[in-house]
Simulated scan of single mutants.
Amino acid sequence: MTLTRDASALLVIDMQNGFLDPKGSMAAIGMPTDQLQPSIEGTQRLIEAARAAGVPVIFTRYQYMAGYADGGILPNELVPAMRDADALLAGSWDADVADAVAPLDGEVIIDKARPSSFYGTQLEPVLTGLGVRNLVLCGVTTNICVETTARDAGQRDYRVHVVADACAEFEQARHDHALNTIGFTFGWVNTVDEVVQAWRP
């Protein structure tokens, strides 16, 4: 599928202090946040290219209410550890988008409490209002929030492009597996260079 600026948006998924910063909550509970650092440079380049081309940039934040009333039930040991670390609490530094990729005034931020950027959020009405049918995805983590969003977008008949070198995962094998799955069924896998070239004014 050919990349285009027309009817397109860049979706920057969960590039937050809690995931990316060594002082963030994911590092505090023992996750290898250094593995997510490679996503930053590629995401910066995509944001710069989108703004220069007039492509809307939309950010998501994975965050929870105080007390984790909206936390749900996940079948692993991460949930109690996250609660103990006050991870990704709404309004906290931990939940904020990292300064390296921070939104500009007026850019849309979608808050969510599940991996999909569509579930329980205003993302789809925003995309409809902007006339978007082509979504370029970057961010963290590839195998969870990026892949889940790509699946949901593909099933809504958006043309989905996931930028491999602007995403990252805690484990390389899961990063590779997610990209293979997305490219097989739900969208197209691209590089930062390909998107920048396609969006060049």
Rank of each mutant, 00 (worst) to 15 (best):
Y62W: 14
L74Q: 08
S25T: 11
E194T: 06
Q37H: 14
A173I: 11
D193T: 07
R45Q: 15
F186M: 08
I13D: 03
A113Y: 08
M82I: 00
L3K: 09
A69D: 13
I73L: 12
D157H: 12
G183A: 12
P80G: 14
I58E: 02
V97M: 01
P201N: 10
D84L: 09
G131L: 12
Y68W: 15
G120H: 12
T128G: 05
G120S: 14
L46R: 09
V136I: 15
M65I: 03
V55P: 05
C145H: 06
D70E: 11
E147N: 08
G183C: 12
E194F: 04
Q122H: 09
L88M: 14
T191H: 03
G154I: 12
G30M: 14
G30V: 09
A98S: 15
Q197M: 02
T2K: 14
L88P: 00
A95T: 09
Q44S: 07
A166R: 03
F19S: 02
Y68I: 03
D21G: 03
I40D: 00
R151M: 10
A150K: 10
I40M: 04
I109H: 02
R45H: 08
A66E: 13
L20K: 01
N17Q: 09
R174L: 14
A28H: 11
I144V: 15
M31V: 08
V163D: 05
A49W: 05
T185V: 14
D14Y: 04
Y158I: 10
C167A: 08
F59A: 00
A52N: 12
R51W: 14
S25H: 02
V189N: 07
V97C: 00
I144S: 11
P103H: 11
A66V: 03
A173H: 13
Q172M: 08
G18S: 01
V108R: 13
D70T: 10
T4P: 02
D70Y: 11
D111S: 15
L127K: 04
W199H: 04
V136L: 10
G18R: 01
A164G: 09
G183F: 09
A178F: 00
V108S: 13
G24E: 01
G67Y: 10
I13R: 02
F19R: 01
A173K: 13
V163G: 05
V140A: 06
Q44I: 05
L130H: 07
Y64S: 05
D165K: 06
I40T: 01
I73G: 01
W199P: 00
Y158C: 06
D99M: 13
P125F: 09
N190M: 07
E107S: 08
R83E: 14
D99E: 15
